[in-house]
Amino acid sequence: MDFQLFIVSFITVFVSELGDKSQLAAIALGGSSPSPKAVFFGSASALLLASLLGVLLGESTALLLPKKLVKGLAALGFGLLAVRLLWPEPEGLDL
């Protein structure tokens, strides 16, 4: 087990993730959601799966899904979350 590589990977990803979209989303959702545990597990598992894909598939991950489509779907997802927070349906926040 190459501990030095482990530390390098940890620091690289930790620094690049601080203040990244996904962490900002975790903060926003973590504070406003009735189930912060679900936000943590959802966010952590999504990030792990994405990095697992990155590690396993390597460069071909980009071929997997066209970048624009993926970013567009992500924008749609975040937009829906934002709308649900800014204009909750009348019967109260269900997020």
Binding site: S22, K71, G77
Partner: peptide
């Protein structure tokens, strides 16, 4: 909702 949104945002990030 958290999983799908963050997973998509993270792909290619």
């Amino acid at each position: 909702s958290t999983f799908v949104t963050i997973f998509l945002a993270e792909l290619g990030d």
